[in-house]
């Protein structure tokens, strides 16, 4: 897609992949962070990691396995919390530990069996060895995320404001919530190859947190968060290639640095502190 602008195919693929991952994750991140669902993002990213490990262990398509496992975990969160009479956060903690343990167990076992699996691409991503189909899939999930937000904008705003109040006002919040979980699972699983299971959380949470330092309304957060993620990711890809640095961790560090800067410069923080 960006070939006319970027001659080098590898760099071009990396920029495209980072751009689509940034758009999907940061838009979802605005909803996740406002609903205090950061632990969902955290658990889903590790579910995708565990799913990919299962796929590799069973010698099937790792990405499909990652998607299936993340969607499965997303579907389990509500029922487990209800049955076990636990807070959702505690359920997520248990599921996170299960996913992490499962992934590490399978990776270690495959190494023991001599299957020669390198876990580093699953853990930290490998943005320079992506197939064109993977980039198309990322483009599709970014588009799906944008369509989801545009279609359900009023419902998303209401559940971001307060889930219980939205439910009490007669909205079908569960429908929107489950679609949201499904898209998070899909996005996280597809982004696994780019930024890895350990770092994807940064894309889900940090751009939205940066936007929240300056934006007073949700509409501008949905625009600023992907823009920030896009710019920082593109710069990170360029710097990674220019100075031969690992791209995904570099972008994660740059996003975190930008967040620190945003907190220091936040106009909103000053205004809200003054009015209180």
């Amino acid at each position: 897609m960006l070939e006319p602008l970027i001659q080098n195919n590898v760099v071009c693929h990396a920029v495209e992949a980072m751009a689509f991952a940034s758009i999907a994750c940061s838009i979802l991140g605005v909803v996740i962070s406002r609903m205090n669902l950061a632990s969902i993002g955290f658990t889903m990213s590790h579910a995708a990691f565990a799913g990919a490990s299962i796929g590799m262990f069973l010698e099937t398509n790792a990405q499909m396995a990652a998607i299936a496992f993340s969607v499965g975990v997303a579907a389990l969160i509500g029922p487990i919390s209800d049955k076990a009479k636990m807070a959702a956060d505690a359920t997520l903690g248990v599921l996170f530990a299960l996913c992490m343990a499962l992934a590490i167990f399978l990776i270690s076992y495959m190494q023991y069996l001599g299957k020669g699996l390198s876990a580093s691409s699953l853990l930290f991503g490998d943005v320079i060895s992506l197939y064109r189909e993977e980039i198309y899939a990322l483009a599709a999930v970014s588009l799906l995320t944008i369509i989801f937000v545009l279609l359900f904008y009023k419902e998303i705003c209401a559940i971001m404001f307060n889930m219980k109040i939205a439910q009490a006002s007669g909205m079908r919040v569960q429908v929107v919530y489950y679609i949201l979980l499904f898209i998070i699972a899909l996005s996280v699983a597809l982004c696994l190859n780019i930024v890895g299971g350990l770092l994807i959380f940064v894309w889900l949470v940090t751009p939205a947190s940066i936007a929240s330092q300056f934006c007073f309304d949700v509409r501008s957060m949905f625009i600023v968060a992907p823009l920030v993620a896009l710019l920082v990711s593109a710069f990170g890809v360029w710097a990674g290639f220019e100075y031969t640095l690992p791209i995904a961790p570099l972008v994660a560090l740059l996003l975190t640095g930008t967040f620190g800067l945003a907190v220091m410069l936040s106009t909103k923080r000053k205004v809200t502190t003054r009015t209180h």
Partner: peptide, 14 residues
């Protein structure tokens, strides 16, 4: 990130 007007409007969404 919601104004009073937006919150009151949400009452109509159901």
């Amino acid at each position: 990130p919601f104004t009073t007007q937006q919150v009151v409007m949400m009452g109509r969404y159901g």
